[in-house]
Design a protein around this nucleic acid. Structure first.
Lengths: 72, 72
DNA sequence: TCTGAATAAGAATTCAAC
DNA sequence: GTTGAATTCTTATTCAGA
């Protein structure tokens, strides 16, 4: 397992609007990391990334906290 | 659109570990709300629910904040 | 342990209808 | 504006292998 790759993924979601795992696969491959969607899926789980609507797009972001009791 | 249903969904994710939209469909149907996965998908978007690992399960939770810059 | 290929599972969208 | 059926898209997992 490449910790380096995990760090790179985190950088990528902070910098870009990553909406699918395939996007990450593409970028990582161009970066020289040879990975498939299966691996990215696992990496995302390790990093605790979640998909969330931000700025009108459903993208991966780093999880902070979740549970709230806001009103609808 | 039933605002009532949205409220119920929020209650459900707070009370139970809802891991799939189909689970919500089942429960809502038993509750008397006749909906399909398509509608639940839209409701989840409206409520801002996200899937997150909590207590070892990947479940729907209410979004609070996301973007962080924690270390890996 | 880690990974990929293939598959299964889950979720979002299209398209029509109301 | 809201919904369901069907479809497409996306993600998680299985299974094998290194």
């Amino acid at each position: 397992m490449k910790k380096e790759r995990l760090t790179r993924i985190k950088e990528l979601v902070l910098e870009f609007d990553i909406t699918t795992q395939d996007m990450l696969v593409d970028i990582l491959n161009k970066d020289g990391y040879n990975v498939t969607q299966a691996t990215v899926s696992r990496d995302i789980k390790k990093l605790g990334l979640i998909k969330s609507f931000e700025d009108g797009v459903n993208k991966y972001v780093l999880k902070k906290e979740t549970e709230t009791a806001n009103t609808v």
